[in-house]
Design a protein around this nucleic acid. Sequence first.
RNA 1: GGAGAGAUGGCCGAGUAGGUCGAAGGCGCUCGCCUGCUAAGCGAGUAUACUGGGAAACCGGUAUCGAGGGUUCGAAUCCCUCUCUCUCCGCCA
Length: 422
Amino acid sequence: MLDIRYIRENLEEVEARLKTRGEAIDLGQFRELDQQRRGLLQESETLKALRNKVSEEISKVRDKSLVQDRIAEMREVGQKIKELDEDLNKVEELLQAITYTIPNLPSRQTPLGASEEENVEIRRWGTPAVFDFTPRPHWEVGEALGILDFERGAKLTGARFTLYKGAGARLERALINFMLDLHTTRHGYTEMLPPFIVNRESMTGTGQLPKFEDDLFHLDGTDYFLIPTAEVPVTNIHRDEILKGSDLPLCYTAYTPCFRKEAGSYGKDTRGLIRQHQFNKVELVKFVTPETSYQELDRLLDNAEEILRQLELPYRVMELCTGDIGFSAARTYDIEVWLPGQNTYREISSCSNFEDFQARRAKIRFKQDEKAKPEFVHTLNGSGLAVGRTLVAILENCQQADGSVVVPKVLRPYLGGQERIG
RNA sequence: GGAGAGAUGGCCGAGUAGGUCGAAGGCGCUCGCCUGCUAAGCGAGUAUACUGGGAAACCGGUAUCGAGGGUUCGAAUCCCUCUCUCUCCGCCA
């Protein structure tokens, strides 16, 4: 959510910056409702002040029969207040509906562009291995090894659900532990294990609702949703709180499964593990002061990259352009891992600074010191990393001519020393 | 699932035959005084949001005692609904 006072005072600028996202947003209605709101508010509050004053006078009079006319008068004032407040509520509801569906302003540093075509490559790390055979896609590698079972996944649930078996299941678990261990022991994050189901307020706080309800699994008969990312529960940990400035930055990491409907992606990535309705992810979340948030974004990105470096998987970092960044984000870097089976780089992490957009929605504030006024924190998050896609990258990059897969060195302690699968 | 109890400011905790309660008191915290230092002591201050005025410091208004609604000139206090917490019983990993 943007600051309504900022919108009010910088209407043209806000419209222009939002336009760089590719969606034209007309703030004319906002302006009109905002004016209506303040008009109604002032009228109502003036009458309330009068009523409070007269009521106090009435309280001082013992014999109420002496003030019957004043009481009657206030009864009418009360009626008028009620009418004004009803109008005010309607206007505020409309206004809220608008402000909750306005996306964040892209950072001024975010490159301009209409679509992912115009994302900017920042750097590459590692050299894709040269194979003396044609590298196969991970679904072939995994099925041949008997560690991924797509057919039975579909039998158990449906399309885009997969059964991991034996060494596949263990490898996934090893990756989760490896990532969490690295982030907690080397990068200074505190591990969290949040609920995988959250309520509507939490989904609204981080920006999934009200606009993207179609992407979420909703639990019938409740107001609960399966989380699409740990970002939701972990960021909402401090919803409606005022943090101490001296406690910032707060850095949390969490493993959770993620559940996404993937509405609108029919026909995309139908094979393999790339696009699932349920997948595992280790997430990084930070609560920081506004002055430090871009510095912290660089660090968070580096923390995510470090996982790939340690796994020795080649990747590149892309900065998303204004046309491609998400609804709540001001600036975003994607990490894309090399997948030889598909001869392409694929997203494995997305690291964003939301500035105060989520903090304002979720009312996450801090005080610079005891006496300071509360300010909104900046929130950041990024995948560190998408676990299923990391497993995909290992199967494809580390596959051998004989169909086996060499386990990256840093993972071996998590697999009882096993060096090879198959 | 059945039966009860409760939800007040950063924390603890008063306040129910409606009015002077944004809310006693204590703790904590901040600033000052005092003491050679520490401890103790003394004094003052210590919520948030919206809104009007002001360049600003700041001043005014409104709202907030779990949430929403109702009664009333007036509600933390009365009524209704909901949420959450706790205790007991049942069930369960």
